[in-house]
Design a protein around this nucleic acid. Structure first.
Lengths: 343, 343
DNA sequence: AATCGCTTCTGAATCGATTCATATCAGATT
DNA sequence: AATCTGATATGAATCGATTCAGAAGCGATT
């Protein structure tokens, strides 16, 4: 028994296929009588719209694609969650693709999405995909860049002001009495890393007191690299320790925290303060809850999806660059008396 | 300029549409000459197959749906990653839906997937969806249960033996000299929680030495609940502390760890050992790296997807229940001399 | 020369929902 | 009574890829 089609429904309800379609898509142009009969027929036959046929004829899609840079990072998961949330509100499903910073996979997913004729694409780009996105646009598939400032490109974007975040983080460290600050992060060809460090330097220069900022470079933004960097720091003679660490993201910060439990003594926050970036959920879950610069990750995803939908509705909207400001979240890793409850 | 269709390609290459289709789908029945010409035409026109038309006529889909119970838990993320990985190898995209333990959302996604006529559905079920899945199957859409033993149901499943895991965890605690063990977890209507506790009790009863197992119940499997449970434990008079905690999952374990930093002293592992379950990546990233029962999360996803594809290929395969055995991962939280490098 | 077998190609029919030009009809207006 | 109006309903044409019955081409066999 093949699934019921619109024709079966029409026959069962004693109306034409056109009327069934109208009940489904523009019920206000149809009599209450027809609506009732058709609805009952749909119920009785267990009819479900065939989306392929609908998409083919009407050209509208009920899926969007989301190409994510790094599915490991909880930050991106939260962004996806936000987008998915908003999408489900519009009865739209999210096709999810993880590139793991691999150009080939990035291309694969864009191909797949193009075949699917998705409604639009959200992407945290890795390689140079400008031309690819242009082509999608030419086919009527808009794209919105996520976690990447669109700048002069002709695409909308949703991102966070990393320079401001870096500044705020270090201002907080200074305000809580720290003077010898190490920025831990890398590599520096990642835009965000550079920006966060730049912000940190601005804060140090503008401070009313002398503040040192040194850089401890890491090879990646991972927990492992954080552990290694932390080990290097505590192996110095005690007098040369910084009194605060600003990590380029929370993963690094968690790694640092691990290295700062020495001989059963937790050095954080009394000897050394730590602040991270992103405010992933595990920041508050750490043994010493981590202060962090919160990125509104869910909001980023939700906003990106909303912009995408607007652009599909109105084909030639002017691209918009949405930039959020991160928010300082103070926990015990920088403030011994921070409330003990989770925030 | 609308996107090129197969007709345009045929015309451009000077062959019929049937031939173009054959080049795309069964190139061995077509002359090398034709393949070359058609390929060139495709290249020149930038032709991309319209998946909606293909799906409509041929009835084959290139997407599978994955309905996830709890997108917050990194365990599920890893499972999705595994499935996605395997899918991309077959040029299949994954439609991702997160239910957050909400029956309405679960239904929403199943509806959406049915409209999409996905190739199949992976689902970590929440509500009672047996009938829903039966109906999908009647329409030719198979389903595979993830992280849930299928048992007598007529669906394949991929899960992990939680009883064995609980047993192995507690055997390890006993072997490392612990005798007063608290199981921390809940609620007990979650199958996994029950099983893990049952396994723990088996280990205690079979031990050569007397071992106590007490239960510290939590309201959910979250970090917060872990923190609260930990606080309750350390507020007891010192003599009544357990010497080991077995947490029902790593989130709870991380919460416990947080409560066991008292006055700058880290009680783990010297006073109290902790072992969790799942081995999420943040287990090894914790301030004191957590021992845990590793679930082969990526493998679970990959296997589930593979079974799903097999079932779509051969409509009436007998359902298979695949059960993995978890693996003990020893880190510092139960073993002070565990290697300091991450594992 | 006729027939057969094989490979390769052709193009009309098809999938199911949407769309739109056209038809129907009750009631209002002249 | 004739005409018009607005609200509804109809059903054939359409979207683009696939499929399949049949045609065409060609060398081998009788």
């Amino acid at each position: 028994m093949p699934a019921a089609s619109i024709r079966d429904v029409a026959q069962h309800a004693g109306v034409s296929v056109g009327t069934v379609s109208n009940v489904l898509n523009r019920p206000d142009e149809v009599s209450a009588e027809s609506i009732a009969r058709v609805s009952r027929a749909i119920e009785e036959l267990g009819y479900v719209r065939n989306d392929a046929a609908r998409k083919l004829r009407a050209g509208v899609s009920t899926t969007v694609g989301f190409v994510v840079l790094n599915g490991q990072n909880p930050f991106f998961n939260d962004v996806v969650r936000g987008a998915e949330d908003e999408a489900s509100r519009h009865n739209i499903a999210v096709l999810y693709g993880n590139t793991d910073e691999d150009v080939a996979r990035e291309r694969l997913y864009l191909d797949l999405f193009e075949e699917q004729q998705v409604r639009g694409v959200l992407i945290s780009p890795y390689g140079d995909i400008q031309p690819r996105l242009e082509r999608l646009r030419a086919r009527g598939i808009p794209a919105v860049l996520v976690d990447r400032f669109g700048g002069s490109s002709r695409f909308s974007s949703v991102s966070v002001d990393s320079v401001a975040g870096g500044r705020m983080a270090v201002e907080h460290l200074i305000a809580t009495g720290r003077r010898r600050i190490a920025f831990v992060g890398g590599p520096f060809d990642i835009r965000q890393v550079n920006d966060r460090l730049a912000g940190a330097r601005v804060a140090a220069e503008n401070a009313a007191v002398p503040v040192e900022v040194e850089v401890v470079a890491t090879g990646a933004m991972t927990v492992d690299e954080g552990v290694a960097a932390g080990a290097r720091i505590v192996s110095r003679p005690r007098g040369e320790w910084p009194d605060a660490l600003f990590a380029a993201n929370d993963l690094i910060a968690l790694g640092l925290l691990q290295s700062l439990v020495v001989g059963g003594r937790m050095l954080v926050p009394d000897e050394i303060a730590i602040i991270g970036f992103d405010d992933i959920s595990f920041a508050s879950a750490a043994a010493v809850p981590l202060s962090s610069m919160r990125q509104p990750s869910g909001m980023i995803g939700r906003t990106a999806l909303r912009i995408l939908l607007e652009e599909t509705a109105d084909r030639d909207l002017i691209p918009r660059q949405t930039v959020f400001l991160p928010e300082l979240v103070v926990r015990r890793s920088t403030d011994p008396v921070a409330e003990r409850r989770r925030s």
